[in-house]
């Protein structure tokens, strides 16, 4: 059984290699102008050159930093606010509908407002990324807290547990799946907003790198940047789901 899984995996990689070979073939025979479509060889060379002699590494670190700060800020604020709102029936009644109303708002629309308030600065990017990633987390946390099995609260009351202990020992663990799902969603949002903010404000990062490469028609550099952004998306999602399955192992065992 394991061998067949491995075999399929290999075959699947072979197909991907075939797609790359087709891309190379198309680029070599100039089916599409090399101004728009560099071959994978040129994109790869540009990637390597960017890391060894260029400042691609600095741009990569820049994007990761923007993402990480905004996302961490949103995580802390989202879980704290969500716990506050979700654990109180009154707050849920008065506050949650307003938050639900704001949910379908495309968050990138607050970028101009942030630019007007904070200028084209690092702080603007941080505010936008944090605000944008806050929503999935906040709503996920509220939902998680609201969906806690009521009998657990009754047990807490019988045991005379203080409110903080109830939150940390009962509500937070049982809301963990919803909170982690929110964190995974907001990670994607953080990456997208980081790229847009870097493009608009010219902040050091891959967003600025790909836009400048396009303006100068350096398509190989552009594709190198896009590939790196894909790698960031892939690796962060992978790390998040690894963390998720580790943190929720006790729950999987219970089911």
């Amino acid at each position: 059984m394991r061998w067949s899984v491995l075999g399929w995996r290999l075959a699947s990689f072979a197909v991907a290699a075939g797609v790359i070979a087709l891309w190379q073939f198309a680029a070599d025979h100039r089916w599409i102008s090399p101004v728009f479509l560099p071959g994978p060889d040129r994109a790869w060379a540009s990637l390597m050159r960017g890391f060894t002699s260029g400042d691609l590494l600095a741009k990569l670190v820049g994007t990761l930093t923007h993402m990480a700060y905004g996302w961490l800020l949103a995580s802390i604020a989202g879980i704290a606010l969500g716990a506050m709102i979700g654990s109180s029936k009154t707050m849920r009644l008065y506050v949650a509908p307003t938050l639900e109303l704001l949910r379908p708002l495309p968050v990138s629309a607050i970028i101009p407002v942030a630019i007007a308030a904070l200028g084209l600065s690092q702080g603007m990017a941080l505010a936008v990324i944090a605000f944008g990633s806050l929503w999935p987390l906040l709503l996920g946390t509220i939902h998680g807290f609201a969906a806690v099995e009521p009998r657990l609260y009754e047990v807490a009351r019988v045991l005379h547990m203080p409110r903080l202990a109830v939150i940390f020992k009962i509500a937070l663990p049982s809301a963990a799946p919803d909170i982690l799902a929110g964190m995974r969603l907001s990670l994607t949002v953080a990456l997208i907003l980081a790229v847009v903010c870097e493009m608009l404000a010219g902040l050091d990062g891959l967003g600025q790198w790909v836009l400048l490469s396009a303006r100068a028609f350096r398509s190989a550099d552009l594709f190198a940047g896009v590939m790196l952004l894909g790698v960031i998306g892939y690796v962060t999602a992978l790390a998040m789901s690894a963390a998720e399955s580790r943190l929720l192992r006790w729950q999987a065992a219970r089911r």
Binding site: L191, I192, V195, G207, V210, V226, L229, G230
Partner: peptide, 14 residues
């Protein structure tokens, strides 16, 4: 996993 906005510059020049 490629974020859609990353394709913006490619779409722009193409």
């Amino acid at each position: 996993p490629i974020p859609s906005v990353a394709l913006l510059p490619i779409a722009l020049i193409a």
